Amino acid sequence: MLISNMLLQIETEDDYRDALKRFLEICAAPKDSEEERELYLLMDLMEKYERNNCSFT
């Protein structure tokens, strides 16, 4: 789900791909920037999606 260009929840594989793409765009964000905060949010959201939807066995 995207609101004002901010991903708040990853519900689908397409959402996940969009989040991953954005993550890769900003992974070198300067410390204490809006992009760094977005980076950590994306990491949390992607990790939650992976735990719930990806099989690691």
Results as ranks from 00 to 15, higher is better:
residue 25 E to N: 14
residue 10 I to D: 01
residue 20 L to N: 09
residue 36 E to L: 13
residue 29 A to Q: 11
residue 51 R to C: 04
residue 10 I to Q: 00
residue 43 M to R: 13
residue 35 E to H: 08
residue 11 E to L: 09
residue 41 L to W: 03
residue 15 D to G: 05
residue 26 I to M: 10
residue 8 L to D: 01
residue 24 L to M: 13
residue 35 E to V: 06
residue 50 E to H: 05
residue 47 E to Q: 13
residue 16 Y to T: 01
residue 28 A to T: 15
residue 6 M to S: 01
residue 30 P to D: 15
residue 20 L to Y: 08
residue 45 L to S: 03
residue 30 P to F: 10
residue 49 Y to V: 01
residue 31 K to I: 13
residue 36 E to H: 10
residue 7 L to H: 02
residue 7 L to S: 00
residue 12 T to S: 04
residue 13 E to M: 03
residue 57 T to Y: 07
residue 17 R to A: 08
residue 38 E to S: 09
residue 43 M to G: 03
residue 37 R to S: 13
residue 7 L to D: 00
residue 16 Y to V: 04
residue 5 N to T: 09
residue 33 S to Q: 08
residue 40 Y to L: 13
residue 47 E to N: 12
residue 31 K to Q: 14
residue 35 E to I: 02
residue 3 I to A: 03
residue 24 L to I: 10
residue 39 L to E: 06
residue 21 K to R: 13
residue 12 T to Q: 02
residue 22 R to G: 00
residue 34 E to L: 14
residue 40 Y to C: 08
residue 46 M to C: 08
residue 38 E to W: 08
residue 27 C to T: 12
residue 29 A to E: 10
residue 53 N to Y: 07
residue 12 T to R: 01
residue 48 K to Q: 05
residue 14 D to T: 06
residue 8 L to A: 01
residue 39 L to N: 11
residue 49 Y to T: 01
residue 21 K to P: 01
residue 12 T to G: 00
residue 43 M to L: 13
residue 41 L to H: 13
residue 33 S to T: 15
residue 1 M to G: 10
